[in-house]
Amino acid sequence: MNKSIETVGQNLVEILTEYLKNNWADSPSSKQTITPATNMVTELQLDSFQVMEFMLEVEDHFDIVIDLESLSDIQTITDLASFVIAAQPE
């Protein structure tokens, strides 16, 4: 399965938007419009438990295992998209 970074980025935007809407409807981060360029750290300010729950959804959606240490270098949705593509089996 060979997906472009744009497609994966768009998938991630949808997963995150849905996750925030379903779980944190009252929080300011759920009201922001998320794009592939959105910085999850500085703009959305997700807390560590939200990050983990979101990663779980990402793992389930793409059927991958995320090595959590790599998250330390991920800031934007596009960063995460490149990571997801690299983690997918050939």
């Binding site: 750290v41 998250l71 991920i74």
Partner: peptide, 11 residues
């Protein structure tokens, strides 16, 4: 051991 999103340098 806990590393946050985007927090490489801080950790």
């Amino acid at each position: 051991a806990g590393i946050q999103l985007g927090a490489h340098g801080a950790y």
